[in-house]
Nucleic acid binder design. Structure first.
Lengths: 234, 234
DNA sequence: TGTATTTTATTTGTCGACAAGAAAAATACA
DNA sequence: TGTATTTTTCTTGTCGACAAATAAAATACA
């Protein structure tokens, strides 16, 4: 577990302990600061956050409920692994949820939704421009989450957020392992999605959401099929 | 909060406290023994379960993560309300998930799945025969959950389970409020769904899943449109 | 030297206590 | 008598401690 002493602990209000720990750990898991499989030690976390173990444990229960960590009774907790053997289930759900949420946003959005969606789109474009992989991954997820919120179905939004989180971890792994790519194409696609939503073109939104998701799936699938050929001149 | 002293506490193994409390409270919420809006008092629960508050709190964190209870810092926790104003979002998600899970079961089921599915089907039929509303509601959910498991996509299964849980609460309310109905039609529909799954007829499964879900939605919608006309002979 | 057993150290699950924050009850005032 | 303020009670958030379970290290044995 990394020593990250850069998280200064603000003066805490009673009752905010659990949420603070949850938020920080969640971000660290999603950014792969805490990689899959890494152990979680309550005592060390208690020292790190300068809290007793009780709120640490409550934060961990929350994270476990979201599948981000795995716990068993009387055993060490650890950051949940990415189930590479069953990524096809993830892809299947992701594509359908991209379709559903984008479609519902076209149908149900309200005027107050669009500034937020556009804001995340701009953040995403800036991250691509700056070639900042972490920011790109996070703003992509935020952009699509805002679209899901505009669709106004909390059940789909909930599942989609979970998929986006898992997608963040997978993409982070991708960007750690391979040459970093910052395709302008995705920025353009986001713009097209926004236009379809604004126009309340439900079918276009669905189609664009599907195509976009399939591109992401394709990108991730490259992670597992890529042969690192040794380009050695003989 | 009802005094239910009928839950005898078995000799506990260390580490099983949280789960025991979680399981019991979850069942009570889903069966409307703990109705929506009812307060949750940690001290009383600690006395009831003969545990300290710490594992009670951990169980409550789990339940909160599943949306079954609502918590705010320094405030009383309560059983979450059913959002009647936005039931259309629930129906929307339910119908799609019935389709998806039934379809995937037709596609992906394995031989070992079918006995379990059939078992729950029989339990459901027995509950209908016995006119036992609680059992009927619970076995219906278990039947469809088993189908979702056979579909082998944990993301869809997760969302569907949550929807089935919420459906249990809604149906329990329905059966508490109105004349109880035990339609043989639903037993027959379950049998047709099983046949389609066995035959790996994906399109039939999808269609049957959809039709079945829409019937349930219709039944629940009757709860809110029904006029209790006074049938008085004048 | 490899394996089994025992001992030690560490981590987890729960306990009961303290205190902060909220709610309820009591008191004061117009 | 209604309202504002104060006091009391209750509930929640967290603390540090104890002990059970597990993991790691040490010892014994073939």
């Amino acid at each position: 577990m990394t020593d990250t002493d850069n998280n200064s602990l603000p003066e805490r209000k009673r009752g905010s302990g659990v949420k603070m720990v949850y938020d920080i750990l969640r971000d660290e898991i999603l950014d792969l600061v805490l990689p899959p499989g890494s152990p979680i030690d309550e005592v060390q976390l208690a020292e790190r956050f300068k809290l007793s173990r009780t709120p640490i444990r409550e934060a961990l229960v929350r994270l476990a409920g979201e599948g981000l960590i795995d716990t068993l009774p009387n055993r060490s907790t650890m950051v949940s692994n990415i189930d590479f053997l069953n990524l096809h289930t993830f892809f299947e759900a992701l594509v359908l949820m991209y379709r559903v949420t984008t479609r519902l946003a076209a149908q149900n959005h309200r005027p107050e939704d669009l500034p937020s969606i556009r804001g995340f789109h701009e953040d995403y474009a800036a991250a691509v421009q700056a070639r900042d992989a972490l920011a790109m991954i996070a703003t992509n997820a935020a952009f699509h989450a805002a679209i899901a919120e505009a669709g106004r179905n909390p059940y789909f939004t909930g599942l989609f957020r979970r998929l986006l989180d898992e997608g963040r971890r997978i993409l982070r792994l991708y960007y750690q392992s391979y040459e970093e790519q910052f395709p302008q194409r995705f920025v353009d696609e986001h713009a097209e999605i926004i236009a379809a939503i604004e126009a309340r073109d439900v079918e276009a939104a669905d189609r664009l959401g599907k195509a976009h998701a399939e591109q992401i799936v394709e990108q991730v699938q490259k992670l597992f099929t890529r042969n690192n050929k040794l380009d050695i001149d003989l």
